[in-house]
Simulated scan of single mutants.
Amino acid sequence: MDYRAYQVEDFLFDESFRQWTSGTSAQATAFWEQWLVQHPDRVHVVRQAQEMIRVLNNHYRDDATDDRLASELQRLMNNAAERRDSESVTPIVPLLQRTPFWRWVAAAVLVFTIGISGWFYINISHKAAATSYANLTKITPVQLQEKINNGAKAVNLILGDGSVVILQPKSRLSYPRQFAGANRTVYLNGEAFFDVVKNPASPFLIYANQTVTKVLGTSFLVRAFDGEKDVTVAVRTGRVSVYKQQEFERAQQLGIRRIQGIVLTPNQQMIFNLEANRLTKALVEKPAALMPSVGTQEQVFEDAPVAKVLTAFERTYGIKILFNEADLSACLVNLMFTNETLLERLDVVCQTIGASYEVHDGQIVINSKGCK
Rank of each mutant, 00 (worst) to 15 (best):
S368P: 08
T211A: 05
C331E: 05
L310V: 05
P176Q: 09
E82L: 10
R54W: 07
L343V: 02
M77F: 05
R236I: 07
F193T: 12
R177L: 12
S219A: 10
V93K: 12
Y317P: 08
K369I: 05
K308C: 01
M336W: 04
G362A: 01
I366N: 14
T131I: 03
I353H: 13
D66S: 09
H59C: 05
I262L: 02
P169W: 03
A154Q: 15
Y60H: 14
F112N: 07
Y243M: 01
I166K: 09
T218E: 07
A5P: 00
E191K: 15
V348D: 11
M291I: 15
N156V: 08
T296Q: 14
I92G: 04
T280R: 05
G227Y: 01
I114V: 10
F179H: 09
R61A: 15
S88R: 15
L167P: 12
I353M: 12
D303G: 10
I256F: 02
R257L: 07
Q38A: 15
L283W: 06
V235L: 01
A70Q: 03
N199M: 09
T296C: 08
V155F: 06
V333I: 15
I124T: 12
K286Q: 12
M52L: 13
D10K: 00
I206G: 14
Y6I: 04
H126P: 00
T338C: 03
Q48K: 09
T90W: 00
L254E: 00
V164D: 00
V306H: 11
R257S: 15
M270I: 05
V333C: 07
G217K: 10
V365Y: 15
R84D: 01
G227W: 00
V359K: 12
Q97F: 11
K320D: 09
D230R: 07
R345G: 07
L56G: 11
Q50C: 05
A64D: 15
N277E: 11
F272A: 03
R345E: 13
R278I: 02
T338H: 08
T352V: 05
N156Y: 13
Q48H: 09
N277Y: 02
S16F: 04
E344N: 02
F120A: 03
